[in-house]
Measured scan of single mutants.
Amino acid sequence: SRHTFEINGERWTVEGVSEELKEILRAAERASNDEAERLLRLALKLI
């Protein structure tokens, strides 16, 4: 499935992501810059 999210003013669209990964991306959208970066690094390990 496709998911579009915005982090630090940048929009991203990813396809074929699991519900778990979507949850991480949604958390990154709400997080501070440092926390968002940490969550994105974690998410990339899952891809």
Score class of each variant (00 low, 15 high):
residue 25 L to K: 00
residue 29 E to N: 04
residue 2 R to T: 14
residue 7 I to H: 02
residue 35 E to P: 02
residue 30 R to T: 11
residue 20 E to M: 09
residue 18 S to W: 08
residue 17 V to I: 13
residue 29 E to A: 09
residue 10 E to P: 00
residue 15 E to Q: 10
residue 22 K to C: 15
residue 1 S to N: 14
residue 40 L to Y: 10
residue 12 W to Q: 01
residue 41 R to F: 08
residue 10 E to K: 12
residue 8 N to P: 01
residue 46 L to P: 00
residue 35 E to Q: 06
residue 9 G to N: 03
residue 41 R to T: 11
residue 13 T to F: 09
residue 20 E to W: 11
residue 35 E to M: 06
residue 12 W to R: 00
residue 9 G to P: 01
residue 19 E to S: 08
residue 6 E to L: 15
residue 15 E to N: 07
residue 16 G to M: 08
residue 2 R to E: 09
residue 28 A to G: 02
residue 42 L to Q: 06
residue 26 R to A: 12
residue 46 L to E: 04
residue 39 L to T: 01
residue 11 R to Y: 14
residue 31 A to V: 06
residue 18 S to E: 04
residue 4 T to V: 14
residue 28 A to I: 07
residue 27 A to E: 09
residue 33 N to F: 15
residue 18 S to Y: 05
residue 18 S to G: 08
residue 4 T to K: 03
residue 6 E to N: 07
residue 5 F to K: 01
residue 25 L to F: 14
residue 19 E to F: 07
residue 23 E to N: 12
residue 31 A to S: 10
residue 5 F to T: 01
residue 8 N to V: 03
residue 32 S to L: 08
residue 22 K to M: 15
residue 37 E to M: 13
residue 37 E to L: 14
residue 23 E to H: 12
residue 46 L to W: 09
residue 7 I to P: 01
residue 30 R to L: 14
residue 28 A to C: 04
residue 37 E to A: 13
residue 39 L to G: 00
residue 14 V to N: 01
residue 13 T to I: 13
residue 42 L to M: 09
residue 15 E to D: 10
residue 6 E to C: 15
residue 31 A to H: 03
residue 22 K to Q: 12
residue 3 H to C: 14
residue 20 E to L: 08
residue 4 T to Y: 11
residue 31 A to L: 07
residue 8 N to S: 04
residue 20 E to C: 11
residue 1 S to V: 13
residue 17 V to C: 14
residue 17 V to Q: 04
residue 16 G to C: 12
residue 4 T to I: 12
residue 24 I to P: 00
residue 3 H to I: 14
residue 6 E to H: 09
residue 34 D to W: 11
residue 21 L to A: 13
residue 41 R to C: 12
residue 7 I to G: 00
residue 47 I to D: 02
residue 27 A to V: 06
residue 45 K to F: 13
residue 37 E to T: 12
residue 18 S to R: 04
residue 31 A to I: 03
residue 17 V to Y: 06
residue 17 V to R: 02
residue 2 R to G: 09
residue 38 R to K: 09
residue 19 E to K: 07
residue 23 E to C: 13
residue 33 N to A: 15
residue 44 L to R: 07
residue 40 L to K: 04
residue 37 E to Q: 11
residue 17 V to M: 07
residue 32 S to Q: 11
residue 43 A to V: 14
residue 43 A to R: 01
residue 28 A to L: 11
residue 13 T to D: 06
residue 41 R to S: 10
residue 14 V to P: 01
residue 45 K to V: 10
residue 14 V to C: 14
residue 23 E to P: 01
residue 44 L to C: 11
residue 23 E to D: 13
residue 2 R to Y: 14
residue 14 V to D: 01
residue 45 K to R: 13
residue 24 I to Q: 02
residue 46 L to Q: 06
residue 15 E to I: 15
residue 32 S to Y: 06
residue 12 W to N: 00
residue 37 E to K: 12
residue 17 V to E: 05
residue 14 V to M: 08
residue 19 E to D: 12
residue 23 E to R: 10
residue 20 E to K: 08
residue 1 S to K: 11
residue 5 F to D: 01
residue 45 K to H: 10
residue 4 T to N: 06
residue 41 R to E: 07
residue 47 I to L: 14
residue 5 F to W: 03
residue 9 G to I: 02
residue 16 G to F: 12
residue 18 S to Q: 04
residue 29 E to L: 07
residue 43 A to T: 02
residue 25 L to R: 00
residue 23 E to L: 13
residue 21 L to R: 00
residue 5 F to L: 04
residue 45 K to G: 10
residue 35 E to Y: 05
residue 20 E to G: 08
residue 32 S to T: 14
residue 4 T to H: 11
residue 18 S to I: 04
residue 18 S to D: 08
residue 12 W to T: 01
residue 16 G to E: 09
residue 12 W to K: 00
residue 21 L to E: 02
residue 7 I to M: 03
residue 25 L to Y: 02
residue 40 L to T: 02
residue 17 V to W: 07
residue 2 R to P: 09
residue 6 E to Y: 15
residue 30 R to E: 11
residue 5 F to Y: 09
residue 24 I to T: 03
residue 37 E to I: 13
residue 41 R to W: 10
residue 12 W to I: 13
residue 45 K to Y: 14
residue 28 A to S: 03
residue 21 L to V: 15
residue 2 R to V: 14
residue 20 E to F: 11
residue 18 S to H: 05
residue 5 F to G: 01
residue 29 E to S: 10
residue 9 G to E: 02
residue 15 E to R: 04
residue 15 E to W: 15
residue 41 R to D: 04
residue 47 I to H: 05
residue 8 N to Y: 05
residue 34 D to Q: 13
residue 39 L to M: 05
residue 43 A to C: 07
residue 22 K to E: 13
residue 22 K to S: 08
residue 31 A to N: 03
residue 40 L to S: 01
residue 22 K to F: 15
residue 42 L to C: 09
residue 30 R to D: 08
residue 18 S to T: 14
residue 6 E to W: 15
residue 45 K to I: 11
residue 11 R to M: 15
residue 41 R to I: 10
residue 24 I to F: 04
residue 40 L to P: 00
residue 37 E to W: 13
residue 39 L to Y: 05
residue 34 D to G: 14
residue 36 A to M: 09
residue 9 G to A: 03
residue 2 R to H: 11
residue 38 R to C: 11
residue 28 A to E: 01
residue 13 T to R: 03
residue 10 E to S: 08
residue 4 T to A: 05
residue 3 H to R: 03
residue 36 A to R: 13
residue 8 N to I: 04
residue 44 L to Q: 04
residue 38 R to Q: 08
residue 28 A to V: 06
residue 16 G to Y: 13
residue 24 I to W: 04
residue 23 E to F: 10
residue 34 D to N: 10
residue 29 E to C: 04
residue 10 E to M: 14
residue 20 E to H: 09
residue 9 G to W: 04
residue 7 I to F: 05
residue 7 I to A: 01
residue 19 E to Q: 10
residue 17 V to H: 05
residue 27 A to D: 06
residue 8 N to T: 03
residue 14 V to F: 15
residue 47 I to F: 09
residue 45 K to A: 12
residue 34 D to C: 11
residue 7 I to S: 01
residue 8 N to D: 08
residue 22 K to V: 15
residue 43 A to I: 11
residue 16 G to V: 13
residue 7 I to R: 01
residue 44 L to T: 03
residue 19 E to V: 07
residue 34 D to Y: 11
residue 25 L to H: 00
residue 5 F to C: 06
residue 27 A to T: 08
residue 8 N to C: 13
residue 40 L to M: 07
residue 36 A to P: 01
residue 35 E to C: 07
residue 21 L to G: 02
residue 44 L to Y: 05
residue 8 N to M: 12
residue 34 D to S: 11
residue 10 E to D: 06
residue 8 N to G: 05
residue 9 G to K: 02
residue 35 E to S: 04
residue 25 L to G: 00
residue 4 T to W: 12
residue 33 N to C: 12
residue 38 R to S: 07
residue 33 N to E: 14
residue 32 S to M: 08
residue 8 N to Q: 05
residue 9 G to V: 02
residue 24 I to R: 01
residue 44 L to D: 01
residue 12 W to D: 00
residue 46 L to K: 06
residue 18 S to V: 04
residue 2 R to M: 09
residue 37 E to P: 02
residue 14 V to K: 01
residue 34 D to A: 12
residue 25 L to Q: 00
residue 25 L to E: 00
residue 13 T to L: 09
residue 7 I to T: 02
residue 27 A to N: 09
residue 42 L to W: 11
residue 27 A to H: 08
residue 5 F to A: 01
residue 34 D to R: 09
residue 39 L to A: 02
residue 31 A to W: 03
residue 13 T to W: 13
residue 42 L to P: 00
residue 15 E to H: 13
residue 19 E to G: 07
